[in-house]
Write a protein that binds this DNA or RNA. Sequence first.
DNA 1: AAAGAGCGGTAACAGTGTTACCGATAAGAA
DNA 2: TTCTTATCGGTAACACTGTTACCGCTCTTT
Lengths: 209, 209
Amino acid sequence: MTITAYQRAQQEGQDVVRAVILDAATRLLVTEGPAALTVRRIAGEVGCSTKVIYTLFGGKDGLGEALWVEGFGRFERRLIAAPTQGDPLADLRAGLDAYRDYALAEPDYYRVMFMGAMPGFKPGGEAGPAARRTLDILVRAVQDCMDAGLLRGGTAEEIAGLLWMAVHGAVSLEISGFFHEADAAQRSRALCSAVLAPYLLPPDDWSAS
Amino acid sequence: MTITAYQRAQQEGQDVVRAVILDAATRLLVTEGPAALTVRRIAGEVGCSTKVIYTLFGGKDGLGEALWVEGFGRFERRLIAAPTQGDPLADLRAGLDAYRDYALAEPDYYRVMFMGAMPGFKPGGEAGPAARRTLDILVRAVQDCMDAGLLRGGTAEEIAGLLWMAVHGAVSLEISGFFHEADAAQRSRALCSAVLAPYLLPPDDWSAS
DNA sequence: AAAGAGCGGTAACAGTGTTACCGATAAGAA
DNA sequence: TTCTTATCGGTAACACTGTTACCGCTCTTT
C-alpha cells in the first residue's frame, strides 16, 4: 500500500480545490451573509458541480466545520496581531479590543462561530479544538498578567472565562443591533474593566482612555 | 364604513385561529427547535392549508415577528414573577437569576430573540418595542436600587445595559454549549457581581451564596 | 490490452417559502 | 328575492434548498 506520485498529485490538487471552494465560501459569507452559503451557489461561484463539494467536504456540515475552523484561524491571527508593548495588562486589554474589532470586522463569521448561524450545524470534530486554541490566547494573556503579579485571586482559566463572557455579551448584542449608539466601545471596555477590577490591585482607568 | 357584526365575528374568529397557529408554532419551537418552524409543518399541525398562515401573518417574516413578541411576552412574565422580598438589590439579583433561568428553560425562544435564529428574519415593527418593554424591567429594578441609595455612580440605563451584556454573554455561551461545566450559575453570578461592584458601597458576597 | 476503481457531471427526490388560480361563501345592490 | 362582487382558503405550481443514484470518463493495476 505505497503512495504513488499520482495519488500525491491528486491529493494536492484536491487540496487546492478545497482551498478555492473555501475561499469562495468565505467571500460569500463575508459579503452576503450566511444565507448565501448554499451548495449550488458556491459550486456556481467556483465553476464546478455540487458533487465536488460533497466529495471534498462530505456535505454542508463538513463545509460548515471547515468554515468554523477557517473563522477561528482568522480570529486567532487577529488576536495574535494585537499590539504588544511589554505591559501584560495593556496587552490583555489590547487583546480584548482586538476581540471586539474582529467581531465587528467580520460579523457573519462571528455569527457562524459563536451565535449558531448555519442552522443545523453542530460543531464537532476539529471544531472544538480550534475554538479551544483561540480561547487559549486569552487564557495565556491573563496568565502573563498573573505571572507579572498584576492579577491575583483566581485561576487564569476562570478570569479569562469571565472576560470572554463579558466581551462576547457586549459584542454579540452590538452585532445583533440592540445597541445603535456610538459608545459601544466604551461600554465594552467598561464591562471588561469591571470584570478585571476584583482581581486588580491598582485603580483602573482604562475604560476612560 | 361601519363595522358589521359579521366583520367583528370574522375578526374574532381570525384572532382565535391566529392564537392556535401561534400555539402550534410555539410547541414546535420549544420541542424541536427553530428548524421545525416550517410553514407546511405548522399548517399540518393545526390542520389547515399554508394559505391561512399567509393571510393571517403575511409570510414567515410576520410569523417570526409574532413569535418574537410572544417570546418577549413569556420572558417578561418570567421576569415579573421573580421573587421579591423588599430589598431592591436582592430583587435585582433575583431578576438576573430569572433572566438566566428563562434562557435555559426555553433556549430556542432565547435563540430566536437574541441570537438570530430564524435566518433571514430582521426584527421590525412591533418587535423593537416588545424588546424595549422587557429590558425596561431590568432598568426599573436598577432604578429602584438607586432610589434606595444602594447603587450610585451612573444612570440606571447605563448600569442595566452593562448587566444585560454580562448576563447575556454568560447565558448565550452556555446555551451554545461552550461551557459544559456545572458551575455556570456561579460564573454568571460572579460576572454580575463584578459588574455591580463599582456602583456598590457595601461588600458583595452574593455570588458565594 | 483488459479489468477495476474513483472522480465528477446530470438529473432526480424530498423538502422549503411563496403565489397564481379557482371554487365557495357571504355582503351589498337591484 | 336574486344577482353581482369581493374575500377567504384549498390546490397545485414555481423557484429554491440539501442530497444522492446513475453513469461516463479517466487512470491504475494486472
